[in-house]
């Protein structure tokens, strides 16, 4: 699928920095395909669990961008336990948590929390987040910088060189 090629480009560990051309290309591809969101979240879950930190960090940036740019269809897929469980595995010491960097775990928790605030209708996101709090995996709600809250605005495009 073209989506697979796009996610590989957007999360490639040899990218020197987050590549917004590829990230936007991935979002556009999701919006074009009927099954785009379902395929995308499955691929992203796999990348987020990468043992390479930089690949995982880029995948989380892509996920955040998709939540801003791919609309309700994408929110609905993220709001299923099928996908949320893959994020829970990343932060839980019972699963991958002990092998995942703090940077990746912090970003996962920040994203989950920001969605509980921005998308209250996606009740499973709240269920997942509060389960992590009950388990003591999340000790306090993170402070989300204003520019990182989920508002449906286009992400910054790189300036022309």
């Amino acid at each position: 699928s073209e989506i697979e090629g796009e996610v590989d480009k957007a999360t490639n560990p040899s990218n020197r920095q987050e590549d917004w051309e590829y990230i936007i290309g991935f979002c556009d591809q999701i919006n074009k395909e009927l099954e785009g969101p379902q395929i995308a979240v499955r691929l992203l879950a796999h990348k987020i669990q990468s043992p390479q930190e930089w690949e995982a960090v880029q995948a989380l940036t892509v996920l955040e961008a998709c939540m801003k740019n791919c609309g309700r269809r994408f929110h609905n897929e993220v709001g299923k336990f099928r996908f949320l469980n893959e994020l829970i595995k990343v932060v839980s010491p019972k699963y991958l948590g002990d092998r995942v960097s703090e940077k990746v775990k912090t970003k996962v928790i920040e994203l989950l929390y920001s969605w509980t605030v921005a998308l209250p209708e996606e009740s499973k996101i709240k269920d997942a987040y509060y389960m992590l709090k009950r388990q003591g995996i999340v000790m306090f709600d993170p402070v989300i910088p204003a520019d990182r809250t989920l508002i449906p605005s286009p992400p910054p495009r790189p300036k022309n060189p």
Partner: peptide, 15 residues
Amino acid sequence: LGEESEERDDHLLPM
């Protein structure tokens, strides 16, 4: 029907 069965199969990870 597909959506209903998908909903039934969608569970939070056991911890």
